[in-house]
Every structure is written in structure tokens, then in C-alpha cells.
Simulated scan of single mutants.
Amino acid sequence: MRRKGDRTTDGMLLLRGQVVTNRLIASLMPQDLSLLEPHLEPVVLTRGEVLFEPGDDVVATYFPAAGTMASLVLPLADGRCVEAATIGREGAIGGIVSAGNKPAFARAVVQMPGTALRIEAARIDEAKDRSKTLRDLFARYADALLAQVLQSVACNALHSIEQRYCRWLLMTQDRVGGSDLMLTQEFLSEMLGVQRTTVTASARILQEKGIIQYRRGRITITDRPRLERTACECHDMVRRHYERVMPAFKAKAVAEPEPQDDLG
């Protein structure tokens, strides 16, 4: 019988008999994992679920599993929303760096349903107080997340809708795995801050080039190398920065997700 926090023969982390696919948790050193593991609770997140709103006290941190993805969005006075960051299996949502009261600035909303590990933010603070290496890892992740936000500002200001569309598809595939993405054009238009007809036109161009296939509620990436070449440099810049500041990920095996079937 395996103990909590064991690893499989190929190095993948097991918690309570389940393979951990969140890269932050899977990269923890054993002594740091022992500080968090007793307080980690598996939860199921549903599409559209709001984890916190602007102004809320952030009392919980979520570590999405492979296939699960959430966005940090800024709601505007006219009812529109602008996406600031996308978070999946590579990271965590809420309460990573700040200590004490943590009023949220953005809304955290689940875009791709699935499982996650939940922990009280207060437990994160306690663990960081006891471990310099844990504190450093979460600070590094916060830097990587900030890089994504900053690059998004530049991308939204300078690059075409087609390039931004491709970047968003690449980010989504990185986080959920598999080639089939359960995304509607309406959803993508909201995330990109443009009209649905504009997104549909970009999708049609990419489909005609053989880069993607799309039908209602599903986009299939058929040629990732060409998708990367069509996207702007922003996706690759954020990815490379992430790899530089998160070296712990390279030392531990992380389970890859199964291809998606249905996320509805």
C-alpha cells in the first residue's frame, strides 16, 4: 500500500492514491509537500464557476489538474470583461504570494471544468513561514504569472486578432492537453475582447489553411507547428520565461493528461 506523497516507478507523484497532474504541487520537495498535503482537498470545478470576485477576501487557493483551466478577468462598468491571465495545470489560483488579508482585484472564473486541489490560503501562509524553498517556489510562480499579464498587455495593444487567437489556442492546449478544445466562438470573443464575427472570421482563415478544424463548441488543433508560426511571439516569450524561473519543473515527472473527450 502506498503512503501519502509517494511516487510511481516513473517518478509521478501520488496523493491518496491519485496521480497529481498539477505541476506546482508535483514539483514540491518532500519536506514542502508534507506541509501542504494534509490540507489539500480534491474538488470538482464546473464551467462558469466563480472562485472569487473583485474585492472578495481570497480565502482558498486552487491547484488545477490537467484539463482544468480558469481565467482571471476584469469586469468593466459596461458589463464587458477583459481577460488578464489564464491558469491551468502549471499554476495556482489565489493566495500564493500575499499574506494576511487578500482582497481580489480580478474575477476568477472556471473556463474548462475538471478537478483541482483546494487548500485554505491561511495554510499556504503558514507553510511559507516554515519553508524558505516553498516561499521561493511560489514567488517564482508569481513572477511567471506577472510575466503573462504584462505580455498580454503588449499583445492586446500591438498584435492582430488572428495572432492573438492563435496565442490563446496555444495557451489553452498547453494547460489542458490534447488537440480537441471545448471552446465556443462566443467564449473566445469575450476572452479576446472582440465581436464574435471577428473571431469566426479568424477561425475560418485558420481552418482554410489546415491549422485547425472547428465546429460548434469544439476546436481541433490539427497543425500545432503552423499554429505556433502564425501566432505572435508572445506565447513563446512567456513560455521561455516560465521555464527559466521555474526550474523545479524539470526535475520531477508530471503526468500528462489524456486526450479530451467532452468537457460539457
Rank of each mutant, 00 (worst) to 15 (best):
A66F: 09
L72H: 07
D10Q: 11
T184H: 06
M29S: 07
I25A: 01
Y242W: 06
G210M: 08
F138V: 01
R23H: 03
E83Y: 03
L45W: 09
P64G: 10
G114D: 10
A154P: 00
M12D: 10
S98G: 01
F138H: 03
P103W: 08
K250L: 13
L263V: 11
A77I: 10
A85S: 14
E120T: 11
A157V: 03
E243V: 14
S27G: 14
Y214L: 06
M1L: 11
A104N: 05
R224A: 09
G114L: 12
R135M: 10
D236T: 14
V50M: 11
M191D: 05
T133R: 14
Q163W: 00
E53A: 08
R164L: 07
S152P: 00
V19S: 11
I221L: 09
Y62M: 07
V109H: 01
Q163K: 14
C166H: 00
H241E: 10
Q185W: 05
V110S: 05
S98Q: 14
W168H: 08
S160I: 04
G79L: 07
V43Y: 09
K128P: 04
D56C: 04
L24T: 06
N156V: 03
G193M: 02
M1N: 07
Y165N: 02
V59C: 09
T172M: 05
R3Y: 09
Q207F: 01
I87L: 14
Y242N: 03
M246T: 13
K102I: 06
V97D: 11
M112H: 06
I219H: 01
G48C: 09
T200K: 10
G79A: 10
P225G: 04
G114V: 13
V194D: 05
Q163R: 13
D223H: 08
G100I: 03
P103V: 05
E37G: 00
R204L: 04
E208W: 01
E162C: 02
L15A: 07
S179H: 11
A108T: 04
L15S: 07
R123C: 08
P38Q: 09
L40F: 06
E37M: 13
T197I: 12
T46E: 15
D6R: 06
T230W: 01
V19D: 03
R215S: 15
M237T: 11
R175E: 15
T46W: 05
G178D: 06
G5V: 10
A104R: 04
L206N: 07
E83C: 13
L169E: 01
A99Q: 12
A147Q: 08
L14Y: 03
V82S: 13
G177I: 03
C166V: 03
I119F: 13
L33H: 02
A66D: 10
A65V: 05
V245W: 14
D180I: 04
M112T: 02
T200R: 09
G17Q: 10
S34E: 15
T184K: 03
L158K: 10
K128F: 07
Q207E: 15
L24E: 02
F138Y: 12
L227S: 06
A26H: 06
A251C: 00
Y242V: 00
I211R: 00
K128H: 07
L158F: 09
L134H: 07
S131T: 04
E258N: 11
I211H: 02
L33R: 02
E41P: 00
A99N: 13
P259M: 08
M246C: 13
V44Q: 14
F138T: 02
R107D: 01
V254A: 15
V245Y: 13
V50C: 12
M182Q: 10
